[in-house]
Design a protein around this nucleic acid. Structure first.
Lengths: 339, 339
DNA sequence: ACGCATCGTATTAACGATCATACAATGTCA
DNA sequence: TGACATTGTATGATCGTTAATACGATGCGT
């Protein structure tokens, strides 16, 4: 609240030079002779001068800040992403403003507008929904650099993402390959939302001539361990219960695993479990979890690189490009061959 | 990069009023009659006008932005903190700039300077070291609002923190109470650093007439599961190994637990384990973990409240206040009474 | 019908920096 | 010695907004 600030003017007054000379000197202009520059630098250091980025941004019309919109940072996969995004941006001289949408579309819109108002040079967004992207497409149409971190190949917006559909396909295909026929899925089933994983699940089943059973689908309504526990409970109480379960992320899988422990079922003998994201806890779970793995650094580095590229383009933005990273399946003890 | 922006001037040109009238109208000044205001608002909406916060900040001398400095956001306890801090700040109209120091002091200094340069209204900091705080004290002396999130009671800077010393004391005291005498500790032993937990451990042992054995101390050099695993390995390979282990956080504890599984030891029969922070995975670990629990929301809410208070004070800042939140121990299966 | 509020809007000067340009004081060359 | 560069520094405009002040046009009371 209006704390005193050392400005160029103060350095100018102290040295007797003009504001402009001081500015040039501190930025190392060759037009300023070395001894003048030195006197100015000394004075600046004495006064503890720090350039005011706000003023700088006003004239340069760039803030060297990007906005990161997350749905929920406590999701371990997003935490990792946030960490490596911040790092990649910092390396390139950008700061990160972050905000969470809490999976609420209006909140997401509010946050985006707020970032615009703050003149961020670009945004990285985990949208709540992979489908309702009008507000983001509109941004892009206004020539605003945006890169999504979950992709719909024809979103009409730049995106870099792990190929969730393919990851889910690989996971379920693996379960089929080792002999499972009744395979459950724990994934949120937001109809407006994000059905890549579900699509991959259905594709693998269909390809194998199995038909997806709606009873084998549980919506955890969240991504935490406890949600996974209760979703597993729902599936396993069925008369004709699944012999394997695919979960949309590792926290859910750990919840499912926990359910088997409490109910004295063996994994993978009684039920196999596959997770997604391969977080550290997956490898070190009570039964090490088979999980869909991908290099999150790769995703974020590509996304940041693309964003910086967009920020650097003069005039109209190039056609949006969507990059999908192909994940791999890490097979651990929580699944293995049957019969 | 210099993308076209709608300014007050554009709205002014479109409506025929002056920039100032438009500014007043959009801010709902009573000096502007309703129908003028309406025409201006309509034009602003048509043009999709958004106030430029950068320009606003320059004149108001506040950015409504705070800087959050974390050591490492992948530490689950810090992730939670980041989430609830962002929320609390957003509720009060502040945005969050975040950066990680990666546990490097120079990096921490750089980040703080950068935030100052960006004119953040205040900072919330998890310092790398609870002792080397000169650069932060200096900030405060310059009347800059800062609140630390780990506390040394006489840090000379405002702070709100869980009482780590007391938490560790409670944990170790519990182990002693249930009959343990050889109690190991897995905690980083940075001599310049943060020995609150170690102090609590030593205090509990000493109080019980036990003397801390340096051999029973392992430095995990990090906070991840795998670090806990190897630290546990070191402790358990001792001829005279511990019957219980206190770990500085739950990830380490889960790593330790994992070690016992791989080596066919039972928890708590062969070795008891206590964690810290009570993250969700602790409750749902292979053996549910006893852990030191505290309301992270309480810590962050108090810290944010204090920071806002400091930002709001005119003139010199009040005396620094340090608030320690008293944690509780949640006892689960990973520890129980011996003999 | 005059003086004086009141009302609605405009003008000007900040905020702290950068950029383009101006302008002295030198130095260089024919 | 006069014309012309070169060098070092200063001046003024600008970025988009707000705040303080100015000012013309009404309305009102007497």
């Amino acid at each position: 609240m209006g704390r005193p600030i050392v400005r160029l003017k103060d350095v100018a007054d102290k040295t007797g030079f003009s504001v402009n000379t001081v500015s040039l000197a501190l930025r190392g202009s060759p037009r300023i002779p070395e001894d003048t520059a030195m006197r100015i630098r000394d004075a600046a250091r004495d006064l503890n001068y720090m350039p005011n980025q706000v003023a700088k941004s006003l004239v340069s019309r760039e803030t060297k800040t990007i906005g990161l919109v997350l749905t929920d940072i406590t999701n371990p996969a997003l935490t990792q992403a946030a960490q490596s995004i911040e790092l990649a941006l910092a390396e390139r001289g950008y700061s990160t403003l972050f905000a969470t949408s809490n999976n609420d579309l209006d909140e997401e819109k509010r946050v985006i507008a707020m970032f615009q108002s703050r003149q961020v040079d670009g945004m990285l967004i985990y949208p709540r929904s992979h489908r309702e992207l009008d507000h983001i497409r509109q941004l892009r149409r206004a020539n605003y650099p945006v890169v999504l971190l979950v992709a719909d190949p024809d979103a009409g917006v730049d995106a870099v993402s792990v190929d969730e559909r393919r990851g889910a396909y690989r996971a379920v295909r693996h379960l089929i390959d080792i002999g499972h026929k009744r395979i459950g899925i724990i994934d949120s089933s937001n109809p407006m939302g994000n059905h890549e994983k579900r699509d991959g699940y259905v594709a693998a089943l269909t390809e194998a001539g199995l038909s997806p059973d709606p009873m084998l689908s549980a919506d955890p309504q969240g991504h935490s361990v406890i949600r996974g526990y209760w979703a597993m409970d729902k599936l396993m109480r069925l008369a004709d219960r699944p012999s394997a379960v695919f979960t949309a992320n590792d926290s859910l899988a750990i919840g499912a695993l926990r359910w088997t422990q409490k109910n004295d079922l063996r994994v993978p003998e009684d039920v196999a479990i596959v997770g997604f994201d391969n977080i550290e806890f997956a490898e070190h779970a009570a039964t090490p979890l088979t999980s869909v793995n991908y290099e999150i650094r790769l995703v974020t580095d590509l996304a940041v690189a693309r964003l910086i590229e967009l920020i650097g383009t003069e005039g109209a933005l190039p056609e949006p490009s969507v990059t999908l990273i192909d994940p791999e399946l890490i097979v651990r003890e929580s699944t293995h061959r049957r019969n």
